[in-house]
């Protein structure tokens, strides 16, 4: 891994009140890889995402995206460094249609005042809507384009959330539990879709509880516990790591997941 990492987290920390949520955490995400961020509940996985995307400021440490230090870049600017993310609890704009939610994903590419005042919905065709519709088609959701997002089923919302993030054309995509609540067929489709994203050169970081999903998808795993890294490596290496087994001990579903995968 001599190349510049897509994401470099260097000794960061964050506390809320008296609780150290993230403590002296460092890890790197290699370019073009699919990395999983795992750990027991409350380990600080989503907080890492929030720190990387700038939702919270860091207490100390630094974060670099593709070699550029973004520690002091505001949350609204980080997308310019090729960063996009999805959310654990889907954050779609319920009062907009599926298509309009996806249009929001293109915002960063739309340009300044001209992009802001470009008519999206005056003439029958325009490039932004066509692109958004094509992206919906790709994931088989063309039928839902003009429906209010709030009324759509969970699995569909989840896919729209992902497509929206993709249309920002990020280099690094953070996915917070993309497979949660999906049925086995949908999960398989998601896996194939995410593999397709890597082929297009997008680096992925995935927070996920479904260990089988991670074993199939990811080549690189970072394990957090109490806000610190306790292990890192291939799924195989991590699975046999003592500290990891200890961290998960007593959590039967994960034990099952481990054995199931191996």
């Amino acid at each position: 891994m001599s190349a510049v990492p897509a994401l470099k987290i260097d000794n960061i920390g964050k506390h809320f009140g008296g609780v150290k949520v993230i403590d002296q955490l460092s890890f790197s995400v290699p370019l073009g890889a699919r990395t999983a961020l795992i750990g027991p509940n409350g380990a600080g996985k989503t907080t890492v995402f929030n720190l990387v995307s700038g939702v919270y400021p860091l207490d100390y440490g630094s974060i670099a995206l593709n070699g550029a230090d973004v520690t002091h870049v505001s949350q609204g600017e980080r997308i310019k460094f090729g960063l996009a993310r999805s959310f654990q609890n889907i954050r779609l704009i319920a009062h907009l249609t599926a298509l309009e939610n996806i249009l929001l994903g293109q915002q960063i590419r739309a340009g300044g005042l001209r992009g802001l005042l470009y008519p999206l919905n005056v003439f029958r065709r325009n490039k932004w809507r066509d692109e958004a519709r094509a992206a919906l088609c790709d994931v088989g959701l063309e039928a839902y384009g003009d429906d209010m997002v709030g009324d759509l089923p969970y699995g569909v919302q989840k896919r729209i959330d992902l497509v929206r993030a993709e249309l920002a054309r990020p280099k690094l995509l953070l996915l917070d539990e993309p497979a949660a609540g999906l049925n086995p067929t949908e999960t398989e489709e998601l896996q194939a879709h995410l593999e397709g994203l890597t082929e297009r050169g997008i680096t992925l970081v995935v927070v996920e509880h479904d260990m089988q999903f991670i074993n199939v998808l990811c080549e690189h795993v970072v394990v957090l516990n109490f806000g610190s890294k306790i292990a890192e490596g291939t799924p195989e290496e991590v699975r046999n790591h003592g500290a990891v087994r200890e961290a998960y001990l007593g959590r039967e579903e994960d034990e099952e997941a481990f054995s199931h995968a191996s």
Partner: peptide
Amino acid sequence: RFGLNLTAISQDELLANLFG
């Protein structure tokens, strides 16, 4: 996009900001 973004801001300011 002006109108689209206003709706997005009123619903979820953080999210709109994260998308630029």
